[in-house]
Computed example of a mutant assay.
Amino acid sequence: MGSESNRGAQGRGRVQGKRMVFARRFTLAAVLVAVLASLAFDCGIGTPSSFGIGQFNLLCPLGGLEAMLASKAFIPVAAISAGVLLLFALVFGRAWCAWGCPAPVIRRFFKRDPKPAKPGTCASSCAACSGAKAALDVKASLAFLARDKRTWTLAAVLVCAIVAGLPLFCLVCPIGLTFGTVGSLWHLIVDKQMTASVLVFPAALAVELVLYRKWCMNLCPVAGLLGIFGQFAAKFRPRINADTCLRTSKGSACDVCAVACAEHIDLHAADVQQQLGMCTRCGECAKRCPTASITFE
């Protein structure tokens, strides 16, 4: 009965991973289609950087925070957007980075994913391996965030907004540049309007995402902001069946999950709970695990 139960769990893990990957790709495509529809039919819904339907409007939360700090004034729509982000990130962590952000798609298209780090020492008693829920270790989480370069980039971006009196990062944000490029190309092709943005936006994207392949892992302040709340997002995290995992059950040097993960999270590491604060819920680890030992809660 035990082996049958393990096989059943394995099947669920792989199916779940495949479904998550398909749903993620569908969502990314739907975002692009919505942006194109907004341009084609002049719907006015905008882009994820500035989105609205009727009287409901949201800004990029980081852009909103920058705007409030730069103007030293309370901006209701920016505060509401930050509140929506807080609720979303406390449940789904950094899911936006895999399910809505175009930057990883561009990076993968040009085959510029960062090389994986060597897997750490296996800690088979960790919560990810046993399926147990670990209590939040605030001290360890703060130490992990302090080591993350994106946390410091976020701090620098907010300080620069205060000093300059402008939301400077919005000028170079890959998310805004991507949708700006889409809009510029649309106006070039449909309206025959040639602007400098047709060249400037793609060039900036090439520098950030193609030439520097570790943008998402080292410098992205949006990831840094989401990662702070991600430390508290305990739901929808990957779990390992230690009875079937090659590393825990047979001692094999398997690192497929770490290689498949965009963040190269090592589910066997001693600090896995802090690493999972950066999990984007992409589902690739569950999909690619050779023994289908990974499931999402």
Rank of each mutant, 00 (worst) to 15 (best):
G8H: 05
R12T: 15
G13Y: 03
V15Y: 07
G17C: 11
K18H: 14
M20V: 12
V21A: 10
A23M: 14
T27E: 11
T27L: 13
T27G: 10
L28P: 10
A29G: 15
A29W: 13
A29M: 15
A37M: 15
D42N: 14
P48E: 07
P48N: 10
G52P: 08
Q55V: 11
F56T: 12
G63L: 04
E66K: 06
A73I: 05
A73S: 13
I75Q: 07
A79P: 06
V84E: 05
L85V: 06
L85K: 01
L86V: 11
F88A: 07
F88M: 07
V91G: 02
F92K: 06
F92W: 13
G93N: 10
A95P: 00
C97Y: 03
W99E: 00
C101K: 00
R107D: 04
D113M: 03
P116Y: 04
A117K: 15
P119A: 08
G120Y: 02
C122E: 10
S125F: 12
S130L: 13
A132G: 13
A132N: 14
A132T: 15
K133N: 12
A135H: 12
K139Y: 08
S141A: 15
S141K: 10
R150A: 01
A155H: 07
A156K: 02
L158W: 03
V159I: 13
A161I: 05
I162W: 10
V163D: 11
G165Y: 08
L171R: 00
I175G: 04
G176W: 04
V190L: 08
M194N: 07
M194P: 00
S197I: 02
E208V: 12
L209E: 00
R213F: 04
R213A: 03
L225M: 14
G227F: 02
F229Q: 00
F229T: 02
K235I: 06
K235P: 03
A242T: 10
L246V: 04
T248E: 03
S252E: 13
D255A: 11
A260Y: 02
E263S: 11
A269F: 03
A269Q: 06
Q273Y: 05
Q274C: 11
L276I: 08
G277H: 00
C279S: 09
C279R: 01
T280Q: 07
C282Q: 05
C282L: 05
E284H: 10
C285N: 02
K287S: 15
K287I: 06
K287C: 12
R288H: 09
P290E: 13
A292H: 01
